[in-house]
Simulated assay, not measured.
Amino acid sequence: MQPFSRKSEQNYGTDLGKTQVRRAGRLPVALAMLTLAATGAVLLPATSASAAPGGNAYVANGSSSSVSVINKNDEVTGTIKVGNGPLGVAVAKGENRAYVTNSKDDTVSVIDTLTDKVITTVPVGDEPFGVAVNPWGDRVYVANKASGTVSVIDTKTNTVIKDIEVGGYPESVAVNPSAYEIYVANVASNDVSVIVGGDNPDWSNTVIATVPVGNRPNGIAVSPDGQRVYTSNNGSASVSVIDAKGENSKVVGTMKVDNGYLTGVAVSPDGKHVYSSLSGTTLPERKGNAVALFDTTDMSKPAKKIEVGNDPAGVGVVGGDLFNVNRSAGTVSVIDMNAETVRATIPVGAGPRAVAG
């Protein structure tokens, strides 16, 4: 087997079979807009997390084995039964599909978003957690926490074509919209695995770098331009900022909050702000929970805090709004990103853990 190298990267376009892509050139903006959600994180497509205005939001309810569907009017329009313990969700908008990880069944439910029906179930690794879709919608990446692997699903056949060994307890996965690279947050080993995608049997779907980050990274997301990767570090109240350069990726900064536990991460459509669910904090008004808002243009700025429901457990950008799931409250807080205030609180199923759209 040939090792992955810069020369290998030049073959991305040939091996993808979709479009001529070169790592240095990045993908066209129109294609980058297809990036999809990942839980806990989100890349949106996403996850790490945006969608076209007017799209539905899909919420994985971990304690009720269901997915709540929320429309653009903040109404729950349906509830979809999935497997046991759903913890992650990603949406392939152009393909009319949503993918939900069922942690207690070791499966992924595939939903047709035109009918909001489960059309098939795919066996994966042990305790699947985060999930992400590539920009073309033909590959789904599943972080299997207990088995320390990432399952690669071919969406044409809905079968696993490879299991990739990564770090300890991978919880979140995101796909770079501007380069064929996948990033995995490993909670137990405090690092990020960088995987190269494609279809080349010599080097595709292999780990090409491991990047040390903060303590207990449980969420990961990529900026819309593909230049930065962000991890929420639950054990160090921080967000690590990674310069996304394939095998040369490295941490170039850290954004911190004064206290609390961060879970999940998402990036604003303009890339200027990063959001993470923050629990165990003390707000001026009361002891409660919040979403931490970081300014990527000045990483030294203290994080702002937007009060949300009890036990915030994940974030995602859907349409023009930020969605935050409140696990213990069984609700979703919808945040106006311009006003930096909650504009709606929506009851969903029990124990919501992830959102994408």
Rank of each mutant, 00 (worst) to 15 (best):
T345C: 01
V76Q: 01
T206Q: 13
D105T: 05
S65V: 02
M255H: 02
G280W: 07
A188C: 03
D225F: 04
D106L: 09
L31T: 15
V239G: 01
Q2I: 13
L293Y: 14
D243I: 01
A292N: 11
I346Q: 11
W203H: 07
D116H: 14
G260M: 12
G167E: 10
Y58H: 13
V140N: 03
E9Q: 07
D163F: 10
M1G: 12
G94N: 13
V194Q: 01
A132L: 06
H273N: 13
V211L: 05
G40R: 07
T231G: 03
F129P: 00
N134Q: 02
R216L: 15
S279E: 04
L114A: 08
I220K: 03
Y275N: 01
G349Q: 06
I242S: 01
M299W: 14
P269S: 09
S65F: 12
P53T: 04
V355C: 04
A90K: 11
E181M: 12
V29A: 15
T210E: 10
P224D: 10
N218K: 14
A329L: 05
V21M: 15
R343Q: 12
G319I: 01
S172A: 15
V175K: 00
N176D: 15
K287R: 14
V142L: 02
V76E: 02
A344W: 12
V252K: 10
A146F: 03
N56G: 05
A24Q: 14
P201E: 13
Y12S: 11
E127S: 13
N233H: 08
V207H: 08
Y169W: 15
L44F: 15
K72Q: 14
M337D: 08
T120P: 00
S277V: 09
N144T: 14
G167P: 04
D295C: 09
V348S: 06
V166T: 07
K93E: 14
I153D: 03
K156I: 03
T206A: 13
R26C: 01
G83A: 04
S268Y: 08
D116W: 01
A41P: 14
V239T: 13
I195D: 09
N102V: 02
A292S: 14
G246L: 04
A339W: 14
A46D: 13
G309Y: 00
Q10H: 11
L36K: 09
N84V: 07
K156Q: 07
P135C: 05
K7H: 12
R139P: 00
A174L: 03
E95S: 06
G219V: 10
G78T: 12
V175Q: 00
A221M: 07
R23S: 07
D191L: 06
G62Q: 11
V334M: 02
T159L: 05
K104V: 12
D298V: 11
R353H: 07
N186T: 00
G309R: 03
G219Q: 04
G219M: 06
G319H: 06
A266S: 15
V67I: 08
M1T: 00
S189A: 13
G55R: 05
I208H: 10
A292K: 02
A237M: 11
